[in-house]
Design a binder for these strands. Sequence first.
DNA 1: GTAATACCTGAACCATGGTTAAGGTCAAGC
DNA 2: GCTTGACCTTAACCATGGTTCAGGTATTAC
Lengths: 122, 122
Amino acid sequence: METTYSIADISNETGLSIDVIRYYERIGVLPAVKRKENGHRAYSKSDLARFTFITQLKRTQMPLKEIERYIRYYNEGDFEACYRTLHAHKLGIERQLAELHDILGVMNYKLENYQQLIQSKE
Amino acid sequence: METTYSIADISNETGLSIDVIRYYERIGVLPAVKRKENGHRAYSKSDLARFTFITQLKRTQMPLKEIERYIRYYNEGDFEACYRTLHAHKLGIERQLAELHDILGVMNYKLENYQQLIQSKE
DNA sequence: GTAATACCTGAACCATGGTTAAGGTCAAGC
DNA sequence: GCTTGACCTTAACCATGGTTCAGGTATTAC
C-alpha cells in the first residue's frame, strides 16, 4: 500500500518542470530516487516532502550549489551544519525583506509623482 | 560650479563595480553620459540620482531588459508606460514579500526541529 | 623621464540555471 | 500490429548577467 508519485506528479506538486526535476537530480540537488521495473522514477511521500522544501529554498533565491550542500549535510547526518546553513540563509532573507520594504517606499513615491504628472497632462 | 562624478564615485555611491557600470551603459541600462576632454565619463548630480534608482530596481530583481525598457519609456516621455511598468513590478515585489514571509515560517519550524535534534544528541 | 593611477576600448571568457533535440523503451487502447 | 502517451538518456544549446584581458591614453607625483 505504498503510494508513489510519477515525475509528472512531482512536477504538478512542486511547480518545477519535468525537465528541471531531472536536471536537479543530475546536478545533485534533488536526490536520486527508486525506479520502477520499467525505469520510471517512483517518488515516495517523503521524497515529495523533501522536494517541496527544496523548491521553497529555491524560491528564496538560495543558489543550487548551496541547496546541494545543504542536502549533503543532511544525508551525512550533520544537522548542525544544516542548522547553520538554514540560519544564515534566513538572516539573508530577512535582510532582503527589509531592503525590499525600503525600496517599495521609494517606488510608491515615484508612482505618486508619475500619477501627478499624468493627471496634469490630461 | 557644476559638480561632476567620476565612474569610481558612481561605483562607490551605487555599489556597482566600475566594470558593471560600463557594461550597463553598453547594453543601454544606464544612459551614456558626457565626457571630459580626456574621454573620461563625467556624471552629473541628476545622473547619480537616476543611477541610484536604477540600481534599486535591480536589487528588486527587475531584469536588465525591463529596466532598459523603463528607461526608454522615460526618455520618450511616456510616463504612463513608466507608471504601468513600475506598478506591475511593485505588485510582483509584494507577491514575493508575501511568499518570502511564508517560507520564513517554514524555515523557523525546520530550525526548531534541528535545534531539538542537536540538543537531544548532546 | 618614468612610474603610478585612473581611466578608456573591444573582445573573449565565464558561471548559473536551465531548455531543447534526437533517439529509444514500454504499456494501454483500438 | 500500430499508434499514443508517458517516460527514459545523452548531449548540445541558450539566456542572463556579468568578469577578465590586452592594449592604449592622460595626469600627477617623484
